[in-house]
């Protein structure tokens, strides 16, 4: 049932999906443009680094420069006119959009008729997608909290003084990559999966695959401990009699700590290795306080955990890595 282009068109043309479709074009453009500017600046930086004399006299932007020109221009009209133009263009876009596409209105709300698929608004589809891989308390509460806190923490853990107010790739490679992975590689990709890939039953449908509400998916997800065959046999002998019936559970809970710790260490080493790659990054790294370093590691390790889990789930069909009676990860 592949090759159903009509299905794809239905998804793309759903009015509420228009923004994410637009983002598919806009984000690459802005990314490209940012890199375009970055590389231009980087060339200038390389040139200035090589020629300290020039660096002392150079105006240090890639924009046209003439010393006779005013360094500052009047806001009115030189900025205002562009803002006016932007407002008009946005209004035009909005009006054309509103005149050609109607805002969706479905049946009146009815708690007894479940929508299939029941999807959140497009901007939250990333979180809903995360629900597939994590328990709701992680996907719905912990992850969004970490995202917000993590975003807010960025300026405080980014100890790199360079790249302040101008585009540069060379001088802040790590920051750029971290953000690209987080924003585009994870968040937007998950939103796209939620929008385009998830169909009835929130099951996985490849593009152009027909959405079939009656589809049944044969799906066996295992926990990591099951793969390792943890049964708690050895624990029975150690535990006090009252806890023996729960031996398996306790064994699994204890076992789960191991892969978590292993992952944590491995990820930390990986991050450390990356941070130590260049001389400049080592300099920046050295400038960071302990608090900054620890915070950065925690956030990066956690962030990397998301793709790792998705990978484990989609490829190895592993549900939980660490299962305890109170929470499972």
């Amino acid at each position: 049932m592949f090759g159903d282009w009509h299905q794809l068109w239905v998804i793309i043309s759903t009015p509420d999906n228009i923004p994410i479709v637009a983002m598919l074009g806009l984000v690459p453009f802005f990314t490209w443009y940012a890199f375009h500017n970055m590389l231009a600046n980087d060339r200038l930086i390389a040139q200035l680094e090589a020629d300290p004399q020039l660096a002392r006299t150079h105006h240090r932007t890639t924009y046209p420069y003439n010393s006779r020109w005013e360094r500052e221009l009047h806001t009115n009209p030189f900025l205002m006119r562009k803002e006016l133009l932007a407002a008009i263009i946005i209004t035009i876009i909005l009006m054309v959009w509103a005149l050609t596409l109607n805002a969706p209105l479905e049946e009146p709300a009815n708690a007894s008729v479940t929508m299939n698929p029941a999807k959140a608004p497009w901007y939250f589809l990333g979180l809903q997608e995360m629900l597939e891989y994590f328990d709701p308390w992680i996907a719905g509460v912990i992850v969004p909290t970490l995202i917000i806190v993590g975003l807010m923490a960025i300026p405080f853990i980014d100890a790199n003084p360079l790249g302040n107010g101008y585009y540069t790739y060379h001088q802040r490679r790590h920051a750029v990559w971290t953000f690209l992975i987080g924003f585009e590689g994870l968040w937007l990709v998950l939103v796209c999966i939620g929008t385009f890939i998830r169909g009835p039953g929130f099951m996985w449908y490849w593009p152009t695959q027909t959405w079939d509400p009656d589809r049944v998916e044969f799906n066996v997800n295992r926990n990591l401990d099951q793969i390792f065959g943890i049964n708690g046999n050895w624990l029975v002998h150690i535990l006090p009699a009252s806890l023996r019936p729960e031996a398996v559970i306790i064994a699994r809970a204890l076992f789960g700590i191991i892969p978590m710790v292993v992952y944590g260490i491995a990820a930390a080493l990986f991050i450390h290795w990356i941070c130590m790659r260049t001389e400049y990054s080592r300099t920046v790294y050295r400038k960071m306080s302990i608090l900054q370093t620890v915070t950065m590691y925690i956030f990066l390790i956690t962030m990397l955990f998301v793709p790792v889990t998705i990978f484990l789930r989609l490829v190895f069909r592993i549900k939980y890595i660490w299962e305890t009676p109170w929470f499972s990860i």
């Binding site: 509420d16 969706p104 209105l105 479905e106 049946e107 009146p108 709300a109 009815n110 708690a111 008729v113 479940t114 929508m115 029941a118 999807k119 959140a120 608004p121 939250f124 979180l127 809903q128 629900l131 328990d135 709701p136 308390w137 996907a139 719905g140 509460v141």
Partner: peptide, 18 residues
């Protein structure tokens, strides 16, 4: 409508798991 109702139901159901 159904669209909003179920989106909000899905969204707020996460809050159960706080």
């Amino acid at each position: 409508d159904q669209l909003g109702f179920w989106a909000v139901t899905v969204g707020t159901n996460m809050a159960r798991a706080t």
